[in-house]
């Protein structure tokens, strides 16, 4: 963990009556800055907040928006809950997987893309849904996803 992030986390921890309360803000800070949370980060947070390492790991591994492995610049999360699955959301994963040549949890060699299946994204009314970084897409189909991925490849990301 670099000193700059460490300082920010210590500052965060002091904003709460109990340092532990800064756990999620600290984890998302690291996620945002570094794209993933390393084991070293987890241990450092435990140390700063004087909480068990296992508790930090528990939180970090629970939330799908936090990643313990390196993810791509564009992290494509596909909802696999009931409604999205009924509307063929699962084939979206296979399709993207084929298109990018990577499996779930892997990163493309150029570091641009990674894929993950996630729990409900809260868009059951407009299923199937996907999330790319913080951008939310609904009523997805294969054509739409092609378009998005192509624009991402060209660097025409509109967020």
């Amino acid at each position: 963990m670099d000193d700059k992030i460490k300082k920010l986390i210590i500052k965060l921890a002091h904003r709460f009556p109990r340092k532990e309360s800064a756990l999620l803000p600290a984890l998302s800070l690291i996620q945002k800055r570094n794209g993933c949370i390393t084991e070293d980060d987890l241990m450092e947070i435990a140390n700063i907040m004087n909480i068990p390492q296992a508790r930090v790991f528990s939180a970090a591994s629970f939330y799908t928006m936090l990643s313990l492995k390196k993810i791509g610049k564009y992290h494509i999360q596909v909802c696999t809950n009931v409604v999205c699955s009924l509307l063929d959301g699962e084939s979206l994963i296979d399709y993207v997987s084929g298109k990018l040549g990577i499996q779930e949890g892997e990163v493309t060699p150029d570091g641009l893309f990674s894929i993950a299946s996630v729990e409900c994204l809260g868009s059951c009314g407009h299923a199937p849904a996907i999330l790319i970084n913080m951008a939310h897409y609904e009523n997805m189909d294969l054509k739409k996803i092609d378009k998005i991925i192509d624009s991402l490849k060209k660097g025409e990301w509109r967020g």
Binding site: I51, P52, A54, R55, S61, F62, T64
Partner: peptide, 9 residues
Amino acid sequence: EVLDMGFRS
């Protein structure tokens, strides 16, 4: 304080 539950579902 060694053990905790990790991951989900």
